[in-house]
Amino acid sequence: MLFRQLFDYTTYTYTYLIADPDTREAALVDSVIEQVDRDLKLLKELGLTLRYCLETHIHADHITGTAELRAATQCQGIVPQNAQAQCADRFIADGEVLRVGRVPIAAIATPGHTDSHMAYLVNGTHLLTGDSLFIRGCGRTDFQSGDAGTLYDSITQRLLTLPDTTLVYPGHDYRGHTVSTIGEEKHWNPRLAGRDRASFIELMGSLNLPNPQKIMEAVPANERCGNMAALAS
Rank of each mutant, 00 (worst) to 15 (best):
S132T: 10
G146R: 03
V100L: 01
A88T: 08
N123E: 13
D89A: 09
F143D: 04
S132A: 14
G139R: 03
A106R: 04
V122N: 00
I92E: 02
G146T: 07
N123W: 12
L160Y: 07
Q144P: 14
G101P: 14
L127F: 14
I105V: 15
L98N: 05
Y152V: 10
E96A: 14
S132H: 11
R99M: 07
A93K: 10
D115Q: 09
Y152G: 03
F134E: 00
S132F: 14
L133P: 09
T114W: 07
T141L: 03
T125P: 08
R140Y: 15
P104Q: 02
L98V: 15
G112F: 13
V97Y: 06
D115A: 10
S116H: 14
T129G: 03
T110C: 09
Q144Y: 13
P104L: 02
S116V: 12
F143C: 12
R99D: 06
H126Q: 10
C138W: 08
T114K: 00
F134V: 12
T156Q: 04
N123Y: 11
C138S: 04
T141V: 15
R158A: 13
A119C: 13
F134P: 07
F91P: 05
I92Q: 02
I108R: 00
L159D: 01
D153L: 13
G95N: 04
L160P: 11
I155G: 01
T125C: 13
G112M: 03
